[in-house]
């Protein structure tokens, strides 16, 4: 078990999902609206990042501090990698230089940092099943080591590969699983002033017993609701719900298409009370976080 309890305050957040069926959404109009016409020669993955980050930055009057660090997470820009690989391996054509440059996974946060005028550090992360929980863990750790002015912009972005049925097979998902592309962003930091909510707990547990230990040590919270990630199956969910006899369920999974970064969207859309989110990997490892209102 590994838990962090450093409070990480949330100043602004944005949850953006695009349910998809046969093609990716055209985000160019949205990017032009948010950022003007100055951003060109970008790929869809970068558009997704800019769309979500733009919404997050616009949702508050305050400006994100230039020294804010950017922690960006995704399963990887897989669709772009495949597109360029097909050109090379199937079509025997060299990649276009901009296609290759943009394929580097940290180009999306580069453009976000540039658009927002950020000059702090930047890390691009990936995780096979718990991308947001891992980024949150790292953000809470970094914040615990930093001063009062430290800020972290957390971005979780996910794109789909088409045809979607092929993508579902690659991810091991049932054939009819609704799918979504997503861009969730949270502006966070160590200072409580002007915060609307805060993360108070983040933990990983490698067994049911360790999960029980985590649940026992949770910080007290009023009006605690529960939410479960896509990795938690019905039986495990029922067992956990038993632990919280009075807990109410925020079952967001039916409202959004599958995306591994969905927990970031839950945190970004949080409003009022307290929420415990639990997710699970196919290997049986749990990830938990608690978010509370600052009211």
């Amino acid at each position: 078990m590994n838990s962090l309890r450093h409070p990480l305050y949330i100043y602004a957040a944005s949850r953006q999902t695009w349910p998809v069926t046969d093609q990716a959404p055209d985000l160019k109009p949205l990017i032009a609206e948010l950022w003007g016409g100055k951003l060109r020669r970008l790929n869809h993955f970068i558009h997704l990042a800019l769309a979500g980050a733009g919404h997050c930055a616009r949702s508050v009057d305050a400006r994100i501090a230039p020294q804010c660090e950017l922690l960006f997470v995704s399963p990887g820009n897989i669709a772009q990698v495949i597109s360029v690989s097909q050109r090379i391996l199937r079509d025997r054509q060299p990649p276009m230089p901009f296609d290759f440059m943009n394929i580097t996974n940290n180009m999306a946060p580069f453009y976000v940092a540039q658009a927002l005028g950020l000059a702090g550090g930047g890390l691009t992360l990936a995780h096979r099943t718990l991308p947001f929980e891992t980024a949150l863990h790292l953000a809470m750790f970094q914040a615990s080591q930093a001063g009062a002015a430290a800020q972290y912009l957390l971005g979780a972005v996910e794109e789909c590969v088409f045809p979607l049925q092929h993508h579902r097979r690659q991810l091991g998902l049932p054939a009819q699983t609704p799918m979504a592309e997503a861009s969730h962003w949270l502006w966070t930091g160590n200072a409580p002033a002007n915060a609307r909510a805060r993360f108070t707990y983040c933990a990983f547990a490698d067994s049911d017993a360790a999960l029980a230990q985590c649940l026992a040590e949770l910080p007290p919270a009023r009006n605690l609701r529960l939410a479960f990630g896509f990795g938690v199956e019905a039986q495990a969910q029922a067992q956990i719900m038993q632990h919280f006899a009075a807990g109410t369920l925020n079952d967001y999974r039916g409202d959004t298409g599958y995306h591994a970064t969905a927990p970031a969207g839950v945190a970004a859309a949080f409003s009022g009370g307290a929420l415990l989110h639990i997710n699970r990997t196919p290997q049986g490892r749990y990830a938990l976080f608690v978010i509370e209102s600052c009211d």
Binding site: I82, H127, R128, L171, A260
Partner: peptide
């Protein structure tokens, strides 16, 4: 054929 790919860039650490 369509390419067979993994679940993402976190597979090596995993």
């Amino acid at each position: 054929c369509l390419p067979q790919y993994s679940v993402g860039f976190g597979v090596l650490a995993g």
